[in-house]
Simulated scan of single mutants.
Amino acid sequence: MWGKVRDRVAGRLNDALSRSGITVPWWVPLGTNTFALIGLAVAIGQRTAQPVPVLIAAFVLMQGGSLLFLLTGRIAPSWLKSLAVLAGVGVLLAFPVVPDFAPMPLAVLSAEVSAIASAGLAFVVTAAGVGVLAVAAATVGLVGFPVYTLAVLLGLCAGFMLRWYVRALDAERGKQDAVREQAMLAERQRIAREVHDIVAHSLSITLLHVTGARHGLRTDRDVDEAVEALAEAERVGRGAMAEIRRTVGLLSRDSAGTRSLPGTVDIADLVADTRAAGLDAYYELEGDVHAVASAAGLGLYRIAQESLANVVKHAPAETASVRLRIEAGAARLTVRNRRCGGTRQSGGSGLAGMAARAEQLGAVLRVGPEGPDWLVDVTVPLPAEVVS
C-alpha cells in the first residue's frame, strides 16, 4: 500500500518538476515542504491565543505552493512562492514567542530556492529573509536574531551544495549513457565484421565448388564429381549459416550455443576447405597454435578468412600461401598470392574490417602489393612467456 502511494506521489512530482524545468529529484521538494510544514505547524501551535483569521492567512500564504500542487499538479514559480512565504513569516513574527519556530520556514525556503532557482534569486530571497528577521528584531523584539540569521545562511549553503550534487549526478549519468552507447556501437560493428567475414568466405568457397561442378558437367560429363562439389558447397553453406546464427545470437540474451569461436587452431582447416574448393592454397605453421589467446586467435583467423576470400574473388587461378609463425612475444600471419592482372585485391569493408581487428589487438597490419604479389601481413603481440 505504502509503495503504491509513494510511486504515485513520485510520479506526479516528477511530472510537475519536468514541466517546470527543474532537475532535482522528486524527494527534494517533498522534503523541503515537509520540513516547512512542520515548522509552520509548531509556530502556529505557539500562537493559539492569536486571532484565527491571522493564523489561517499565515498558513495559506506559507503553504500556498503545496495547495497549488495538490489542486492543479503544477509547481508555483520560485519568486511567487518566496514572496508568499516571506509574507506569511512576517505575519507570524508580528506575534513573537520564545523560542520561536516561525523563522524555520525561511531557512527551508533559502535552501529550496538556491537548489532549484537561479543564484541571483537565491541571494535575493536569502537577503529578504534576513531583512524580515531584522525588522522583527527591531520592531517587536524577536529574540535570537543571530541564530535565525545563521540558520537562513546555512540553508543557502545547503541548497547550493545540493545544486552541485545534482549537476554532478546528471553529468555522471550522461557520461555513463555515452559510454553505454559507445560500447553498443562497438559491439554492433564487431558483429557486423564477423558476419561479413563469414559470408564473404563461405560464398567464395561455395562459388568455387559450384564452378567446379559446372565445369565437370560441361567438359567431362562427370556427374559424380559435380554431385561431390555441390555436396561440399552445401556443407560449407550450412556451416556458414550455423556460424552466422551463433554470431548473431550474441545480440540476444539467450545462449547462442556452447561451440567456441574459431581461432589459430582452425586456420589449417580453413586453408584445407579453400583448397578442397579448388583454390591452390598451402599452409605453413611454425610454433604452438595453442599459445595464442582466444581473442588474438579469432582475429588472426578472421584476417586469414578475409584474405583467402579476396584471393578467390580477385585471383582464383593463382596460388595462395598462408604462413603462421608463433614465437616469443608475437604471432605473425602472412597471406601471399600472385596478383592477377595487377588488380587491387582488397577494399571496402573487407580491408576496413582487417584494420579494425588489427587495431583492437594492438597488431601491426600491412596490406598491399609487394612486387608481383599481393601481401597481407599482420603481427599480433603476445605475452612474453609465449615461446615458439
Rank of each mutant, 00 (worst) to 15 (best):
V5C: 05
R12W: 02
L13I: 05
N14Q: 14
S18C: 04
I22F: 08
T23A: 14
P25A: 12
P25T: 09
W26I: 01
W27F: 15
V28C: 02
L30V: 15
T32V: 10
N33E: 10
A36K: 03
I38F: 13
A43I: 05
R47E: 06
P53C: 12
V54L: 15
V54R: 14
G64Q: 06
G64D: 02
L67S: 04
L67Y: 09
F69L: 03
A76R: 13
L80D: 05
A87F: 12
A94C: 11
F95I: 07
F95M: 10
D100C: 08
D100F: 05
P103V: 02
A107L: 09
V108I: 13
E112I: 07
S114A: 15
S114H: 04
A117L: 04
A119L: 12
V124G: 09
V124R: 12
V125W: 02
A128F: 08
V130L: 15
V130Y: 06
V130A: 14
G131H: 04
G141E: 04
G141D: 07
L142E: 03
V143H: 13
G144D: 03
Y148E: 02
L150N: 03
L153E: 05
G155S: 06
A158G: 14
A158L: 13
G159S: 09
A168D: 08
D170H: 13
E172M: 05
Q176H: 10
Q182L: 15
M184D: 15
Q189G: 11
R193A: 09
E194Q: 15
E194F: 10
V195K: 04
D197P: 05
D197E: 13
I198K: 01
I205T: 15
V210M: 14
T211W: 10
L217A: 00
L217P: 00
D220V: 08
R221T: 03
V223W: 07
E225Q: 13
A226M: 05
A226V: 01
E228M: 11
A229M: 10
L230T: 02
R235T: 00
V236A: 08
G237E: 01
A242S: 06
I244P: 00
R246T: 07
R246W: 04
T247M: 04
T247L: 08
T247K: 07
L251M: 11
S252P: 04
R253T: 10
D254V: 13
G257R: 05
D266F: 00
I267E: 02
D269L: 12
D273Q: 14
D273V: 08
T274P: 03
A276G: 10
A277S: 15
Y283T: 03
L285W: 00
V289G: 01
V292E: 00
A293K: 00
A293G: 14
G299P: 01
G299T: 13
L300R: 06
L308F: 09
N310K: 13
V312P: 02
K313H: 13
H314G: 10
P316G: 07
A317Q: 12
E318A: 12
T319V: 11
R325M: 06
A330W: 11
T334I: 14
T334P: 07
R338G: 04
R339E: 05
C340T: 13
R344Y: 09
A355D: 11
A355V: 11
A355E: 15
A356V: 11
A358S: 15
L361I: 02
L361C: 06
L365F: 11
L365V: 06
R366P: 03
G368W: 06
E370Y: 06
P372G: 09
T379F: 01
T379V: 12
